[in-house]
Design a binder for these strands. Structure first.
Lengths: 210, 210
DNA sequence: TTTTACATCCGTATTTATACTTAATTTTTA
DNA sequence: TAAAAATTAAGTATAAATACGGATGTAAAA
């Protein structure tokens, strides 16, 4: 019987190597690669076509987990991604599954669940535990998943807001009326479904608008 | 020759177990315990007095790394703490060393450095690499250490701000006056040297305060 | 033990952001 | 080409944040 071939992608070397050691203990699983970001991962799978599963961290430099998911979808890869994240957050989970993830594990999971997840996903089934399922459902019901599209000007304004400029300062810099910027701000808040600037900036960072 | 006795404290089980496996590979080091928060750690060292080093994560539930450092100092423990953190930020580093840490490693360090750090600290010397030293110096020279450390309450307020709550809402939730929250906000802005909430949230995300 | 930071609160004033509305012009896209 | 979205702008009003100033008790650190 051939082993399940796994690649680990995480920017924290210590975590990556530790995880490798843990997975090594499983007889039916084999770690064939270990990378620190999405670019390195793509390079590996270009050369090595026989990869079953990638254990994927979300927050990585250069090319993060979301980008990798998107890429895998684009090239119609058969590699099944399992997200290993520290974000216990419905938003993240929904975005991952939407982007083609087969599983979502939290970093405080245990070896047993990790192995179950790998085996489940290897068979082509999705894996998510009760906790993740709950978070997802809560998120779905409360929030519309579809992210509204922020226009070019709005993005520009958003950048300046995040730099700490006021409406007036932004207006001066962009040579338009303050009222225009006010309108932009109101539209951005509406599109991202947030109450105020504080929440806006957090969300914008989260969905990589900034 | 007796082995160096190490305890690992981190709330992410996967990381903790992985780290244990990595350290196990060293012949002169022995992992005698593995805990998920500061309380568990204190319970262990009450029973077992022969501990040399604790590999300590900062962000943990119930009792975090800072609390543990403080406690170790209080009881005049001989256990030497090495921080293993994902916060690549002078603020954190300074606070840790001030609280009695013997070393500060980033989670993207490698096995080799980890072992070097453990061995160095075991001999009673402090360990910090070039990167950490640089960050520390930059931080120190930019401003006085204490001024930039965000207190626990301030962090709590910051979290609620980032969730989109207003001053009044935060005050209600924390059962204090709005004026108190206003003061906290003003102090946070000052400490992080930002002009307004928008810039604040961006910076807070950047240095992983939220 | 003296100082320093923390957490708590208030007065007063100004600036900034948000809410709700409407609407003209331009650009993009179906 | 017609419809949709983006960009521009405004009236009116309220809510929220920020800027100064000050204060007190407590806990921790030097």
């Amino acid at each position: 019987m051939s082993k399940i071939k796994v690649i680990i992608a995480d920017d924290h070397e210590l975590f990556r190597n530790g995880l490798t050691e843990l997975v090594k203990k499983q007889e039916n699983i084999e770690v064939i690669g270990s990378v620190a970001d999405g670019n390195q991962f793509l390079n590996i799978i270009k050369k090595n076509k026989e990869v079953d599963i990638v254990l994927l961290d979300i927050t990585m430099p250069n090319m993060d987990g979301f980008d990798v998911l998107k890429k895998l979808k684009d090239i119609k890869s058969s590699i099944k991604p399992i997200i290993i994240s520290m974000h216990n957050d419905g938003n993240y989970m929904a975005k991952c599954f939407k982007s083609g993830a087969y599983g979502y594990l939290l970093k405080n999971t245990d070896e047993k669940e990790l192995n179950t997840a790998i085996e489940t996903v290897y068979l082509g089934k999705k894996y998510f535990n009760t906790e993740v399922t709950e978070k997802m459902i809560n998120f779905m019901s409360s929030n519309s998943v579809s992210e509204k599209i922020i226009s070019k000007k709005e993005t520009e304004v958003l950048m300046l807001i995040s730099k700490g400029l006021t409406t007036k300062e932004i207006a001066n810099q962009l040579f338009v009326s303050s009222r225009t910027i006010e309108t932009h701000r109101a539209n951005i808040l509406k599109k991202l479904e947030v109450k105020n600037t504080a929440e806006l900036i957090k969300k914008a960072v989260k969905i990589k608008l900034i």
